[in-house]
Design a protein around this nucleic acid. Sequence first.
DNA 1: GTTAGCATGTAAGGAGTTACATGATTTT
DNA 2: AAAATCATGTAACTCCTTACATGCTAAC
Lengths: 201, 201
Amino acid sequence: MARRGETIELAVLGLLHEGPMHGYELRKRLNLMLGWGRLLSYGSLYPALKKMLRGSLIAEVAPEQVPGAVASRRQRIVYQLTDKGAAEFERLMSEVGPTAWEDDNFDIRFRFFSSTDMEIRLRVLEGRRSRLQERLDRVQRELAMTQKEVDRYAAELQRHGVESVEREVRWLSDLINAERGARTDTPPPPTSPAPSPASND
Amino acid sequence: MARRGETIELAVLGLLHEGPMHGYELRKRLNLMLGWGRLLSYGSLYPALKKMLRGSLIAEVAPEQVPGAVASRRQRIVYQLTDKGAAEFERLMSEVGPTAWEDDNFDIRFRFFSSTDMEIRLRVLEGRRSRLQERLDRVQRELAMTQKEVDRYAAELQRHGVESVEREVRWLSDLINAERGARTDTPPPPTSPAPSPASND
DNA sequence: GTTAGCATGTAAGGAGTTACATGATTTT
DNA sequence: AAAATCATGTAACTCCTTACATGCTAAC
């Protein structure tokens, strides 16, 4: 079961999947990516890179291997994906399940959706959507019980929260429709014997 | 400087400020409040309560102190705010500064806005707004530099993210205007302590 | 030549989750 | 009588942040 820590790992894998990069640059990209919340600190990134190095998911690029670069400014460590790392990336991206549609994880998955095939994309989008729907239901249900004398600001916060989640649900629905629309363009599925019902909850 | 840990503490102080409550109930309310993300576990709440007990911010309500309650079902521990806890709550709520408009903290502050006066509210709302505005600027700036070949899904994620934040900025602006509108109703003297808080509806 | 930004790291510690452990009360 | 849910707690662990520490390079 994927821990939360795999969030950074998956993001690094994904970025390096697009090309070699050094730590500092990774951090900047990562902050842009998941940076809507907090910033990622060096204290998280570098140890994570070391760990991935130990696991042979990534490897240092030898300085000579990067031609065209000016021979000076030598002190940054450029990383690239190993075959094992690439395989791990594919594996993680193909995982459908709760870990794929939790708040943080979902954004990362989505960012690298191009690296997965449509069936996975659809399942992740749908999983995310029902996750949010559940939340709305739960809040609505609990709100019905607790609602006595509601504070003005508390009510406004609730309203805004619900509205935001509803907005996100609509966004997901649009994306799902777009994917489904694209699916009908493709030739009829050759051998699809209706896979497991995927009891997503 | 307020650590992140004060998030739970402030929330508990705020809830108990509205009336005595036992731990289990606190957890439910807390999850509804900040539960848009993850759920708060017992492993966080109970130790936090213990810590607050030690700090005399809260105290156990003696069972006899709650008349009207059925004498049975005795095992839950009801907490109430002490004078010290109430003072601490006021102090935290009056704090203007970064801690007040960080993601998690802001929601809590807002939830208990009724317990503060308008000048504080305005400053927190404005602080929050410029925080978000900064983020938008930063993203826009960095996007201008990095933008070469943008991945389709990466671009969509960015777009949606920007739109959400812009939406939040508008929400804040509306709230700020509402507060300012209410302010013009009160007599002009700015140098008076103005101990009469507007009715909390 | 000195400030600012690039670039990499480590150590200590905080905050919170998971899993465990227990028992009472209410509902079916 | 069993199952669900209420209710409280502890221990181990993970993840991450803060603060510290270092040195190179570019700009002013």
